[in-house]
């Protein structure tokens, strides 16, 4: 059965989606990714969708699910490289992907993850009483 490969880079997981996802493939990815986050204690998940030309409400929901599930496991999710046409279509469809962080490309996404995790660690070391939302 087809699977989308998940790469590990330090404390981050990197997924590059190169094919059009059909439902089962997307659901498998969701399950695999959550397992991997748990197993590797990853702090961040980076999903590159620059090669994806269509994101419908189902796909959008999977991405949202991955972000929420990773969040519970203490990992941030960044989606990078969304095509302009896909972004406009998602907005018109009524799916703004709330709670998912985005960046223009993998490099900027990595930088974003690092600052987010860095901030968190700084907060922890300062033992600040305020909990980040």
């Amino acid at each position: 059965m087809d699977r989308i490969p998940i790469l590990r880079m330090g404390s981050f997981l990197l997924v590059t989606i190169q094919v059009d996802l059909y439902d089962r493939l997307a659901l498998t990815l969701e399950a695999d990714l959550v397992q991997m986050v748990n197993k590797t204690q990853a702090k961040g998940v980076l999903i590159d969708i620059s090669a994806v030309s269509i994101v419908d409400s189902f796909m959008g929901r999977i991405v949202g699910n991955i972000a929420s599930m990773s969040k519970i496991l203490d990992a941030e999710t960044v989606v990078v490289g969304m095509q302009p046409a896909v972004a406009i279509t998602l907005i018109e469809l009524g799916l703004p992907l709330k709670g998912v962080h985005t960046a223009l490309d993998v490099e900027k996404g990595m930088a974003l993850l690092k600052t987010m995790i860095g901030d968190e660690e700084a907060d922890e070391s300062e033992e600040d009483d305020s909990v980040a939302e």
Binding site: D23, S53, I54, V55, D56, S57, F58, Q83, P84, A85, V86, I88, T89, E92, L93
Partner: peptide, 16 residues
């Protein structure tokens, strides 16, 4: 390209 994406996404919803 934008209209293509809109149409394909819309039909994707219906097909699903």
């Amino acid at each position: 390209l934008l209209n293509q994406t809109r149409l394909i996404t819309a039909s994707s919803e219906i097909v699903r």
